[in-house]
Design a protein around this nucleic acid. Structure first.
Lengths: 232, 232
DNA sequence: CCTTATTGAATGAATGTTCAACAAATCAAG
DNA sequence: CTTGATTTGTTGAACATTCATTCAATAAGG
């Protein structure tokens, strides 16, 4: 139908007409996969996991019904590919922030925390999609693995930084517990952002995390009333 | 079938033969509802939200297929009743702990945190069910409301306690951010417990939370290497 | 042409809901 | 207390719907 085609532009930023769209089959295949994954994230965010259908994904991408089974074998594989995509993106994002921070542990931890509240990662659409997967992770080993892998390396970096700050600045805390607590708090803040509880915004959530840093590492972070980075 | 009837006892602690089971229809109705809600939690924990079916719930309770639509009008209403049941139970649990704590704010916060890691509330089965609902909450206003109501009053109590400790003991932190951070951390720890990431146990999660308390309220809580309550 | 991508209708399986029949408890009358 | 009538609880099969998957036909690119 013509109506379906017209929808292509309005949803999911699906088609990228600016770039090399005519570069033959191979490129087109990757473009299509990415387009369908984005439509899947849209659907997960809008309808939730249990109501995300192949038809909805196809419609969201402005394509026909049968197309998803052509590029991905099954619905399950589409979902796994989507989760993998999000995990890779998340991982690349904090690793970039980590590298950019240089050698100072205080700067490292500040930038890692800030990265978690970056707009490109932390928005309603993606938070909702993450949460949709979390909700199914317990009963699906594949999801659990992909979600778990996300955290494992991430938390280890925090443990290491906390340990370094401890010996460098002579703190008394338990490094592992402090790092695990920070990671848990970051995830909990994501959860609250997604739920939209009590007018929590990305900024106020970030502020909560900064308050934690100021409390645990008073020698490195100062409390500030207004917004700002405040690496003392 | 006879096989189905025999299963009744093994699953969900369904039938309670000890109590007033013969007290007529009215009582039986409540018993059945509770039995079906427990079976629903079982199914959510075992299969996840998207694979929880009416048939599975009925089988889990050792009853026939059509029974759920008799006691609850629809699947949706069954799920809402289940979530409401869990929210009420959770609320009653922390309120009891709060009352039991008396007037000392340090004792209050310690008992509230401990209550969150109590076996009756914090076990794989219920954590998994909570998480299943969280995953669908964003796209279903009813769930969002019930989950949100859970947190609102809960967090307010923490804010109040933090404010009181601040003026009483002369701390410098921001009361709201500190309380919100603690609530977020508790939820994040639940999430990690449910995921089973990195061998996190109920005890180690509790320990992480205690480390946070020791950091924020050093005058009230002392750091301890081994387990224990340690209200200094 | 020939390969690849895409379409949309057909198919079959899964599942929520309905319902007529059945069982059991409660009550009324004898 | 017994018996019959009525309400209440329960069953399992039938029904209708939704949805993932398949596939023959078609369009597009090389």
């Amino acid at each position: 139908m013509a109506a379906t085609m017209k929808k292509t532009e309005s949803l999911a930023g699906a088609d990228l007409p600016g770039e090399g769209e005519k570069r033959g089959r191979k490129a087109s295949k990757e473009v299509r996969r990415h387009q369908l994954i984005e439509a899947t994230i849209d659907s997960l965010a809008k309808r939730g996991f249990s109501e995300t259908t192949m038809a909805d994904v196809a419609d969201g991408a402005g394509l026909s019904r049968g197309i998803v089974n052509f590029h991905f074998e099954s619905k399950e594989k589409l979902l796994v590919a989507t989760l993998k995509h999000m995990a890779d993106e998340y991982s690349a994002h904090w690793r970039a922030a980590y590298q950019k921070a240089g050698d100072d542990p205080a700067r490292q931890i500040a930038m890692l925390v800030a990265a978690d509240f970056d707009r490109s990662i932390c928005n309603r659409r993606k938070l909702a999609a993450w949460c949709a997967f979390w909700g199914e992770a317990k009963s699906r080993p594949t999801y659990q693995e992909l979600c778990g892998a996300r955290d494992e390396a991430y938390q280890n970096v925090f443990v290491e930084i906390c340990a370094r700050l401890k010996t460098d600045s002579g703190y008394d805390y338990a490094a592992y517990e402090t790092a695990a607590g920070l990671c848990a708090m970051l995830e909990g803040l994501w959860l609250r952002l997604m739920m939209g509880t009590e007018g929590m915004t990305r900024e106020s959530a970030h502020q909560v995390a900064r308050e934690y840093l100021a409390c645990v590492f008073p020698k490195q972070f100062s409390r500030e009333r207004s917004g700002g980075n405040a690496i003392a």
